[in-house]
Structure formats: C-alpha cells, structure tokens
Computed example of a mutant assay.
Amino acid sequence: MTDPTMRTAKFGLGAVVRHRIYPFRGIVFDVDPIFDNTEEWWLAIPEEVRPRKDQPFYHLLAENAESEYVAYVSEQNLVPDTSGEALRHAGIAEVFERDAAGTYRIRDRHPN
C-alpha cells in the first residue's frame, strides 16, 4: 500500500532546473520523497521562505555565476530550466552524459 501523503516527484534524474527565487540552476542527481536533511539545516532557512517538509526535495549539482556546489532544494522552489544552455558543474561528467538533443542521461555504470 502506498502512503497517500507521498507525492510523485515533478522532476526526474537529469532534469535541469532553476531556483524560483535565487539565481542558480542545476541538474537533479537524487530525489528524497520528503525532507531528509537535518533540523538545523531546515531551521536555518528564514521562516517566511521556509519550505514545507512534506514534498519532494532534490539534490542538485548546482551553479551560479560565481561557483559550483551541491544544493538541496524543495520542489516548491524549483522550476524547469528551458534555456537549453549546458551546465558547467565539474561533477556532471561523472554522473551524466549529454546526448545530441541536449538531454542529460545517467551514465551506464559497468563494473570493471
């Protein structure tokens, strides 16, 4: 039986997204069905913009104009990135490959 409070994630692995408020974008490399970080992390977010915990949260290989980093973002704060611009995050090549259409796909991991 599935939990009726669980929602299907809006973005899948390899989806390129932008933050709704802050100027960064990234690629989804993991999804938590609900919040799965520390209470300290959650409480550090200003209350007026603090997201609900009962929604998917995404692990992103993220970048802004100055740097590349890993971000943890609620679904309510993400929108699709439709720019078509390639991402430059150094970690992307380890996890994804980009096809001729510009879509990011998980790399095949074959044991040696």
Rank of each mutant, 00 (worst) to 15 (best):
H59R: 14
V70Q: 01
I21F: 09
S67L: 11
E48A: 13
T5I: 04
L78N: 01
R7I: 12
A65R: 14
A90G: 13
R18H: 00
A9K: 09
D36R: 11
L60N: 03
G14V: 01
F11N: 03
F35R: 10
I45R: 09
T38P: 00
R52D: 15
T82E: 12
T5Y: 00
G26A: 01
M6I: 11
S67T: 12
H89F: 02
R7F: 02
N77K: 05
P56F: 04
P4A: 08
P46I: 08
T82C: 06
I92G: 02
L13F: 05
D3M: 00
M1H: 13
E39W: 00
P80T: 09
D30F: 12
A71R: 11
A65T: 11
D36N: 14
E63W: 10
W41L: 14
L13P: 01
A44N: 15
P51L: 06
T8V: 09
G12V: 04
N64H: 11
N77Q: 13
E48Q: 14
G91P: 07
E48H: 15
K10Q: 11
I45A: 08
Y69F: 15
I34T: 15
G12H: 05
K10D: 10
N64K: 03
I92W: 03
D3Y: 03
E63K: 04
Y72W: 10
P4N: 07
P23C: 11
T2S: 15
R88V: 14
R88W: 08
V73H: 04
M1K: 11
N77C: 04
E63R: 09
L13Q: 10
D32E: 14
G84Y: 05
T5F: 01
M1Y: 12
I45L: 08
D36C: 12
V70A: 00
W41Q: 15
A65I: 02
F35P: 10
P46G: 10
L13M: 01
D30G: 15
E48K: 14
F24G: 01
F57N: 03
Y22E: 13
G14P: 03
E47L: 07
P56K: 03
F29C: 05
Y22V: 09
T38D: 12
R18N: 05
W42R: 12
M6L: 14
T82R: 12
E40G: 13
T82K: 11
A71Y: 11
P56W: 08
A9N: 08
P23G: 03
F11C: 02
A62P: 07
G84M: 08
A15Y: 10
G91N: 15
F11I: 10
G26C: 06
S74G: 02
K53Y: 00
A65P: 03
H89V: 08
A93P: 02
E75F: 03
L13V: 04
